[in-house]
Structures are given as structure tokens and as C-alpha cells.
Design a binder for these strands. Structure first.
Lengths: 173, 173
DNA sequence: CGGACCATGTAAGTCGTTACATGATTGC
DNA sequence: GCAATCATGTAACGACTTACATGGTCCG
């Protein structure tokens, strides 16, 4: 899986611009797949060359022009073929856990502050996902499935952090 | 954070070879930080040039020679400075969740098989971490903290998968 | 005798990030 | 007037992964 497949997935649902795609990702898959504009725009160009998608320039009032991309039949085939290809393993890279792993080489204050930062992030994440859940009640069952995973895992993370923070405070007594 | 910092962390604890480092990672941080030999060996060379580490060739009987790397004071400083630097966000890239997100474009059989594969992985992971936990009772509290996180999160994943598999089976009735 | 483990390394290619560059409009 | 939002794009660089290359020992 790479960014091309994810973009093709979104364009299968409806035509979008690079900007739209980025917004869409932020509101849906960002917590398990993230991409920057520097990755999205070149990918769209590549895919246009390969005839997976077609560009349509849309004039807008009071806003810059927009490059709307429409998926072609070739693009749909490519996407469906990805959906049949072997599953790739999940990639995780956590600076927080690496630092805790080597925690004896730093101060308790540092560890506490890292945990608190992560706690805040998890809280924001949870709030964000709950809002999405309320705002779009007609999501299909698969999108709902990943959304609920996001909510549950944010809650799991939150509980873990709170528990560890409590342990660290106990160690101070 | 990059591979250099993680290697310096391990070498702070004791001298090791590239091969040792890879084994060590597999038994400790692999579920939140992974690295291939193709990343480890070049990193060791770079760090030797930068005088963060020093090489010591060790003759072995019945085994190939080993390049044991020892951390220098400069290397220790570099590592400690990393431990004081701003925390980087966690990176997650899940092919499974992307495919479920776009699940309406594939078959239930596919989704079920992906979930079962992931279930098996989580079970193996859980068993592996439990073995590590029993095998090394004298881990410092920080290493134990990350290990228990690994165990808890594997259990969380497992429960989620089992729940989703049950839902999919219900949908068949 | 074959597979697993021990052990090191390189080269080509992939895939991405960050920073830079530009510029209009809307709302406070 | 300033920040945020809308909108697109490139260039330099970083940081890997995969595949290739090599070869010895141990165990069943």
C-alpha cells in the first residue's frame, strides 16, 4: 500500500482536488495513514500520466481555481487490484516508547512531560473522532468500523497514560 | 528520532555487534520500532566515522568474526542530547485499516481473511512478549513499562478483531 | 544433506518529508 | 492589518527497504 492506492480509494467515491483529499484524510484516516501535500500533489501528477485519473479545472468565485481529479476505468482497476493484493504489515514508529524504553537515562520530569503531551493528543483525537461520528451518521459500516477502532484505541492509550502517570507520582512519595 | 539514536541507546547499555543489535531489537522494541540490517550496518559505519562509537574486532571459535561496537563519550553525549530533544509524533501506517475503510469495494471473505491474519499475528506477539516477560524478571521498570504496554495493546487488538469477526459472521445469517 | 543460525556488507531504488514559493479572500 | 483558509506546486534531501553477495558452523 502507498499513497496512490489511498488516493484512488477516495477518488472512487467522488472527484476531488489534492486539497480536498488532504482535508478528507485529516477527517478520516489520519490516525492510521498520514500524507503531506508534498506527497499528494506529485502522486496526482504521476497518476494522471499513467491515466489512472483525469484532471478537470474548475473555476471558483472568491477562491483559487481547483484541479478536480476524476478516476478512470484504468484507475478503478488499479484500485481493485490493490484491494486483492497481499496485506502489508502495520508500521509503527513511536518516539515516546523508545524514550520510555531508555527512560533510565533521563529525568522523571521529562518522562512525565512526554506522557502529558501524549495524553493531550489522545484527548484531542478522541474529541475529534467523536465529533466526526456525530456529524456523519450515514457513514457506511466499514468506515464506522475504523472510526470506532480509532475511538477505542484512543481511549485505551488514554487509560494507559493515566495509569503510568499515577505510577510515576507514587514513586515520588 | 532515527535509527542512530536507538542504536546509541543499546550501545549505552553494553558493547554489541550489528547482529546483536538486530536480535536485541527483535526481543524488545520491534513492536514499536523496527530496523533492517540494511539500515543498521550503514548506520554503524556512519557513527564510527563521526566518533560516536568505536569498533573492536572479536575472534570467535566456530563462528564468523564479530565487529563489537563500543560507545564513546561523544556518542553518549549525542544520545543524552537526543533524550532532551523535543518528542516526535508517533507514526502509524496500517494497510489493514485502510482496506477496511474502503471495505465496500471488496468481499467479506477478503476482510475476514485479513482480520484472521492480523489475529494470528497479535496472538504470536502476545505469546512472544509474555515469554520475554518471564525470561527477564530483572528488567528495569522502564523496559517493563514498554513491555506491558505491548502486552496490553496486543490484547486490545485481539479483542477488537474478535469482536469484528463476530459482527461479520452475524451479517451472514 | 538441507535448513537454520551466525555474521557483514553494498547498491539501487522507493518513498516520503520539509522547506520554499506564490497569491487571493474572508473574518476578526 | 493579520491570521486563517483555500489552493498548487517543486527541489533538496533523508531515510530507509529489498535484493544481492558471501561463507562458515551446527544439528537432525
Amino acid at each position: 500500500m502507498n499513497i496512490q492506492h489511498v488516493i484512488l480509494g477516495f477518488l472512487t467515491e467522488k472527484p476531488m482536488s489534492g486539497y480536498d483529499i488532504k482535508q478528507m484524510m485529516e477527517n478520516s484516516v489520519a490516525y492510521f495513514f498520514d500524507a503531506s501535500y508534498g506527497a499528494i500533489y506529485p502522486a496526482l501528477k504521476r497518476m494522471e500520466k499513467e491515466a489512472f485519473i483525469e484532471k478537470e479545472v474548475v473555476q471558483q468565485e472568491g477562491k483559487p481555481n481547483k484541479n478536480l481529479y476524476v478516476i478512470t476505468n484504468r484507475g478503478k482497476e488499479e484500485f481493485l487490484s490493490y484491494m486483492e493484493s497481499p496485506l502489508n504489515p502495520t508500521l509503527i514508529r513511536s518516539d515516546l516508547l523508545i524514550r520510555i524504553f531508555f527512560g533510565r537515562y533521563t529525568s522523571k520530569e521529562n518522562i512525565t512531560s512526554w506522557l502529558k503531551k501524549e495524553e493531550q493528543k489522545a484527548k484531542n483525537q478522541l474529541e475529534h473522532l467523536n465529533q466526526i461520528n456525530e456529524k456523519y451518521p450515514n457513514m457506511d459500516s466499514f468506515k464506522k468500523m475504523t472510526l470506532l477502532y480509532g475511538i477505542d484505541s484512543a481511549q485505551f492509550t488514554l487509560k494507559w497514560i493515566e495509569n503510568e502517570l499515577a505510577k510515576l507520582r507514587k514513586g515520588d512519595e
